[in-house]
Design a protein around this nucleic acid. Structure first.
Lengths: 343, 343
DNA sequence: AATTAGCACTCAATACAACAGAGTGCTAAC
DNA sequence: GTTAGCACTCTGTTGTATTGAGTGCTAATT
C-alpha cells in the first residue's frame, strides 16, 4: 500500500522536525515551519491517517505526533535524502588521520571509530577482523629465557597476536628454529579455524622426538589464537548525554550498561554481511537496544569482509547524515587498508 | 589539636552511617543505632562542635550532618579500622583468576582491575607499566614481505610492543638478521628512555653501509616505543549508578566524561610513588574529581614500581573495605608478577 | 468532495499552598 | 555536665488550580 504524495511530505516533515527537536510535532508547526500551502486542520487529518497506518504515534492525546519505528523505517527506505559529508567534515577527517601514525590495523580502526563518534556525536563501535577467519602469514618464536618463549603470529589481515609459552626444559636455539620453520611451513596460508587436530598431528608426525616441546607449544598457541576471536572498540560513549531522551537516568544507565557487555555488542555487530544495514528500535533483537537504532557497515579488503564499523544512538537518529558519513568513512578505510596490506 | 574520645566515637559513627545510607545523619539516629549511652541532646552538642571544627557539615538547618572532606580525612588517618577481605571475597578472587589464562602482564592487570571493580562496586583503573622506564629485553624483526617488517620488542616488565615498518627496498634475510643482532646487542638492557641519539649513532657507526635501511627502521621503532608510554584500563564504569549521589544526571555525566579523557586519568594515576594513597574530594587537583575520592596503590616486581591500580568513587566511599581489598589485590598481583617475570 | 475555521475537550506541565516530619538550637531543670 | 522539652527551620510531599499546546469533530466554505 503506497502513501499519497502529500502524506509522504508530511511524514517526512514530522520526522525531520522530531529528529531535530526531540519534541512531539504538532500540525501547526508543520504548517508554519514547512510551508505546505495547506492549513493545520488538513494536516491534522492527514496525521490522523498516518497514525492509523502506523507511521506516527501520539504520546498522549494533547501532544503532537512522534514517528514510530515503522515511520523511521519508511523514512530510511524511501523518504530521506542521503547527506554527503560536508567539506568541513571531510576536512576534519583528513586532519584527524594526519595526526596519527597509521600503521597497524587496530590503530587504524580505532582512529576511524573516534572520527565517527566525533562527527556524528553518537556512540561508535568497531569490530576488529576475525582471527579465526584470517589466515596465518607468519609465526615467530622468540626465546626469552631458558624456559620462556613468546610466540608472535601475524595474519594476512594485519593482526599481530602474541602469547607467552612456558616450556618444560631448555632447548637449543637450533631446535627452536627448526620448530619455528616447521610451524611456518605447515600453518602459513591456513586460516586459524582450519588449524585442527589433523594439522597438528601432521606436525607432530614430522617432528618425532620433539613431542614434549611441541606439546607445550602448540596447545597454548592454538588456544591463544582461538580464545578470543575479535575485539570491539567503542568511542563517544558519553555522547548520549547530548540527547534529552537520555535525561532519564534509568535509560542512560541501561544504555551504558550495554556498552560494558562486550559479548552482547560482539553479537550485535557480528551478524550478517551486507553492506550498510540499519536496524531501528524494536527491529533489534536485544532488549537493551529496543529504543536505539544501529547503523553499521562492513569494511573490507578487496572483496573480503574484515570487520564492522557502526553507530549506536537513539531511534531519533539523523539517519541521512550518519549513513552518509559511514559510507564515506568505510570507503576511506577500505582504501587505507588496501594500501597497507595489499602488496 | 586532638579530639576528645567521645567526639571521635561520634564522628566515626556519623561517617560510618553516612557511608552506609547516603542520608544526612541526625543525633537521634546516632543515639539509638549506635548505643552510646548518652542522649541525643548531648550528641547534638558534640555534633555542633564537630561542625565548628570542620569535620562535619550541614546541608541545611533542619537536616542531619554529613562528613566534610576533612572529616573523611580524619576518619581514614585515625578512626577507621582496616577491613580485611572476607573469606567470600578471597574465594571470589581465586575463582576469577582461575578462570583466565594468566600469561601476559596486560591480561593480568586487566583481570585484577575487573576483580577490583567487581568486589568494591566502584570504578577501577589500572595503569600499565611504563615503557620508557622498562628496559629492552629482546627485539625481533620479522620480515613480512619484501618491503614490510614487523618489529617486536619485549621488555623486562613483560610488555610486548610491535610496530610495522616499511623499508625502501628489499633486503636479504642475512642483512636483516645482522641488523637484528646488532639492535639486540646495542639496545638490550637499556631502558627505552635511554635510547637517545648517541646510542642510535653508535649503531649507525657500526653498521656503515646500511644507512638507508637503518634510517627507515630505527626512527619508526624509536617513535613507536616512545609515542605512548603507558595505557590505562578501566572497569566498572557504570558502577556509579549504584550510588544515589549520581542520580543527578549532571554529576553522572561529569564523572563519566572524565573516564573518557584518558590523558587526565593518566595524569592522576601517574603521580607519586608511595604505597597506598587516598585522595579525598577537594584534595584532588582536577575539578572533575573534586567530589570523588581516589584510592590507589603501586604494583611492583621486587622493589621496582611498575604501575598503579586504584579505585575512583564518591567521597562517601567505603574506605576501610576498599583499602583492605586493594592491599590484598596488590599483594596477589605482586606475587603473580614475580612468578611470571622473575627467573 | 476536499478544505478550512472554529470550538470544545484532553492532558501534561507548572505553580502554589498546606502539611507533615525530621532535625536542630536553646533554655531550664536535673 | 547532661538531658528533657519546646519552638523553630527547612525540605519534601500532597493536593488543587491554572495554563497552554494540541487534538478531533462539526459546520461552513470553496
Amino acid at each position: 500500500m503506497s502513501l499519497g504524495e502529500r502524506k509522504k511530505t508530511i511524514l517526512r516533515a514530522v520526522i525531520i522536525d522530531y529528529i531535530d527537536t526531540a519534541e512531539p510535532v504538532g500540525s501547526r508547526t508543520i504548517a508554519k515551519k514547512y510551508e505546505m500551502g495547506i492549513s493545520s486542520a488538513t494536516i491534522r487529518n492527514e496525521m490522523a491517517d498516518l497514525e492509523e497506518l502506523g507511521y506516527l504515534e501520539q504520546p498522549h492525546t494533547s501532544a503532537g505526533r512522534i514517528p514510530s519505528d515503522k515511520g523511521y523505517r519508511f523514512f530510511v527506505n524511501e523518504l530521506m535524502e542521503l547527506q554527503r559529508p560536508s567539506n568541513y567534515e571531510i576536512e576534519a577527517v583528513r586532519n584527524f588521520l594526519d595526526r596519527t601514525t597509521i600503521d597497524e590495523i587496530d590503530n587504524i580502526i580505532k582512529q576511524i571509530s573516534k572520527i565517527l563518534s566525533n562527527i556524528t556525536q553518537y556512540t561508535s563501535a568497531v569490530l576488529s577482523p576475525s582471527v579465526k577467519k584470517s589466515s596465518v602469514k607468519s609465526i615467530q618464536l622468540i626465546q626469552l629465557s631458558l624456559t620462556d618463549i613468546i610466540a608472535v603470529v601475524i595474519t594476512d589481515t594485519g593482526i599481530v597476536r602474541h602469547c607467552k609459552i612456558k616450556i618444560p626444559r631448555p632447548i637449543s636455539s637450533n631446535t627452536l628454529i627448526a620448530i619455528n620453520n616447521m610451524l611456518n611451513e605447515k600453518l602459513a596460508g591456513l586460516t586459524v579455524e582450519d588449524i585442527d587436530l589433523s594439522v597438528i598431528s601432521s606436525i607432530q608426525l614430522e617432528m618425532k622426538g620433539y613431542d614434549e616441546i611441541l606439546n607445550s607449544i602448540i596447545p597454548v598457541l592454538n588456544e591463544s589464537l582461538k580464545s578470543f576471536d575479535c575485539d570491539i572498540f567503542l568511542d563517544g560513549t558519553t555522547n548520549i548525554f547530548h540527547y534529552p531522551e537520555y535525561n532519564d537516568i534509568e535509560k542512560a544507565k541501561n544504555f551504558l550498561s550495554l556498552l560494558e557487555h562486550k559479548e552482547k555488542l560482539l553479537d550485535i555487530f557480528s551478524e550478517d554481511d551486507s553492506n550498510i544495514t540499519v536496524s531501528i528500535g524494536k527491529e533489534n533483537i536485544y532488549d537493551e537496544v529496543k529504543e536505539c537504532s544501529i547503523v553499521k557497515a562492513s569494511y573490507k579488503i578487496g572483496d573480503k569482509t574484515l570487520g564492522k564499523i557502526g553507530v549506536i544512538g537513539p531511534t531519533r537518529m539523523n539517519y541521512a547524515k550518519v549513513i552518509g558519513i559511514l559510507k564515506y568513512l568505510t570507503d576511506t578505510l577500505n582504501n587505507m587498508l588496501k594500501n597497507q596490506l595489499d602488496e
